[in-house]
Write a protein that binds this DNA or RNA. Structure first.
Lengths: 218, 218
DNA sequence: CGAATTCTTGACTGTTTGATAAAACTCTAA
DNA sequence: TTAGAGTTTTATCAAACAGTCAAGAATTCG
């Protein structure tokens, strides 16, 4: 059986639909979204949309499938050969950039996990877990060499995920608290600065009169 | 007009319904939840449930109203007169305990914020923001005295919220990654230990041969 | 007790929503 | 240019769902 070649129109419309679906699903979750809303957002009729994706579920699963890969890319880039502190700093920066540039994807993922990962659970076991296990081992290696403080690397990863994704997922709350002073870019710059300080040095100040007696990361 | 006194049955049933509603709303969000599911969970017929809460929205709003108060309680307890590091540590511990003991409430809140806070937005402005502004000022005071490292206190609060709530909201993901080795209690103990280390000292190790040149917090 | 009040239920209504059928229209390649 | 494949629309359906109603059952209280 030959793989169906896609027509120009097919490629265009599937893209348009998935973009609209991402918009709606990320805002309202799977069950909260309606096909009408997605069709509306995509600027086409409902039956027309269903010509490309026969079921609501198909759209959602197409989105989820491409999502996890993108989502894990920053962690994949974490390099065991690099300098630990700057590697982790880069990872935090990349995750924060994803929250800034792909907030809809972040919310879609959050929605899915929040509801018990009904569609993505198998992928978590087969894709997410092995990757995290692998990178946790890398980080553990750094700790054994005394290059970074010894903590549970998996919880470290959780804290990087949660703090960075917070700016996409809880955006409304963040905006209410920070006010309109600084635009979105300013918020993310401030967040990057803060997270760097937190993850590197924490809150406990260096001994007075002995400022920053820390190893300098290159 | 006299305030209706509530009968025994009324008090009991409203409690039962709200508990069931919390269960269902926190798992599926407002639109994803159905009255049938809630009635089922509460062990009563749908018309009976609707006798107590005439609309689905009424249940949701009753839950949201009582939620924010509980949710902000730990932050209210942050004491400007206390020792900064141990105050913040206690705050983190209290928030983590809330994630452990009230995961449904955490998820309900996350769902609401994720969807743009359609029901709770006004309360965020009138309750959440002033409290955060107030406590941010307290934390800023500590920083000016050099008792903790200087960072943006609002982002500090965001990171405490996100890291602690992560264990309730992303519970499934956390469980997949940590495996079944340690039970729920173990997970939260590990999380508490990790977060203390992160927020106090970060990842950058003390200079070799000069172990932990830090102010000791009492 | 017994009447008034409160509570519960089965049967029902109108609407929203996911999905289909088939006809009409458009595009493309020989 | 035109046959056939690919695309869009109109009309429609069945299930799911929020909410109603009226009548019967249970509870309360004088």
């Amino acid at each position: 059986m030959e793989t169906q070649r896609k027509t120009r129109i097919q490629v265009e419309n599937e893209e348009r639909i998935l973009d609209a679906a991402l918009e709606v699903f990320s805002e309202r979750g799977f069950r909260g979204a309606t096909i009408d809303q997605i069709a509306d957002q995509a600027g086409m009729s409902k039956p027309n949309l269903l010509y490309y994706f026969r079921r609501k579920k198909d759209m959602y699963e197409a989105l989820i499938a491409r999502l996890l890969d993108t989502w894990l890319e920053p962690l994949r880039e974490l390099d065991g050969e690099g300098d630990p502190l700057s590697e982790l700093q880069s990872y935090i920066r990349r995750k924060l950039e994803m929250s800034r540039d792909f907030p809809r994807e972040s919310r879609l993922f959050a929605n899915e996990i929040l509801q018990g990962a009904p569609h993505i659970r198998p992928l978590l076991e087969t894709e997410l877990k092995p990757l995290v296990d692998d990178k946790a081992e890398v980080i553990r290696g750094w700790m054994k060499q005394g290059l970074i403080n010894a903590v549970d690397p998996r919880h470290l990863i959780f804290s990087i995920w949660s703090t960075t994704q917070h700016y996409a997922d809880f955006d409304i709350q963040v905006r209410v608290i920070l006010g309109p002073d600084r635009g979105a870019d300013g918020r993310f710059e401030d967040a990057a600065r803060y997270l760097e300080a937190l993850f590197l040095d924490g809150l406990r100040p260096a001994v007075a009169g002995n400022p920053l007696p820390r190893v300098q990361s290159l």
